[in-house]
Design a protein around this nucleic acid. Structure first.
Length: 194
DNA sequence: TGCCAGGCCCTCTTTAGGGCCTT
């Protein structure tokens, strides 16, 4: 039986220049909780890898970021992180941040940048930990043939999903989570406290 | 110009290797 107050779980997703958690730059930071969304594009200081560009539609030209050819407003990564912390601080009590494969990717990238910009202390005041929905889906449904966000969306929501937009993916993850309706112990098992 | 991964999990394993998951 759970003996803790269930914290708010905010779903988030990063689009990045590539898959190297030690070096990649964030190109979009998105989050979702019910009717509240966070969405900021960031101009990367390193090239976007071809595969990442193919998936997200993002390109850089003349020091500007484009998504499928449409220019988008960008902010410096430091400002995006501070805005994200402020967004999370508006919720009641420290929140849990949930992402798909967060333990191997999103969490690592985010924590690296928070440390780099000396924002971890502020972040820690509003976030208590990370929930990995990839591990959660494996725990809840051990007999599935695949656990990618796309496959899970197809399995539980029907249709084809190929978002690769940070906010859309965060919203999609929130929908899946609500369908799965895990109990506190399920969530606890895949939560990494910070 | 730069940058182009990494760690867990599973099995036809363990003196290994391939698949998965994120962009």
């Amino acid at each position: 039986m759970a003996c803790w107050d269930s914290p708010t779980i905010v779903f988030f997703d990063l689009e990045t220049t590539g898959l190297c958690v030690k070096r990649c730059h964030i190109t979009q930071l998105g989050a979702s909780y019910e009717d509240y969304n966070f969405d900021q594009y960031i101009l990367p200081r390193i090239p976007i890898q071809e595969k990442a560009s193919e998936l997200t539609g993002m390109t850089v030209s003349g020091g500007r970021l484009f998504v499928y050819g449409q220019r988008v407003k960008t902010v410096f990564v430091y400002r995006a992180l501070k805005s994200f912390i402020n967004f999370l601080g508006d919720f009641h009590g420290p929140v849990l941040l949930a992402a798909h494969n967060s333990r191997r990717f999103d969490e690592l990238v985010l924590m690296r940048l928070l440390a780099k910009f000396s924002l971890f202390k502020r972040f820690k005041k509003v976030v208590s930990g990370f929930v990995d929905t990839l591990l959660l889906s494996k725990d809840l449904y051990p007999d599935l043939h695949g656990y990618s966000l796309q496959k899970l969306a197809h399995r539980f929501l029907g249709g084809e999903y190929n978002c690769h937009n940070a906010v859309d993916d965060a919203e999609l993850l929130e929908k899946l989570f609500n369908i799965w309706d895990p109990n506190d112990e399920d969530i606890w098992n895949v939560t990494k406290w910070i």
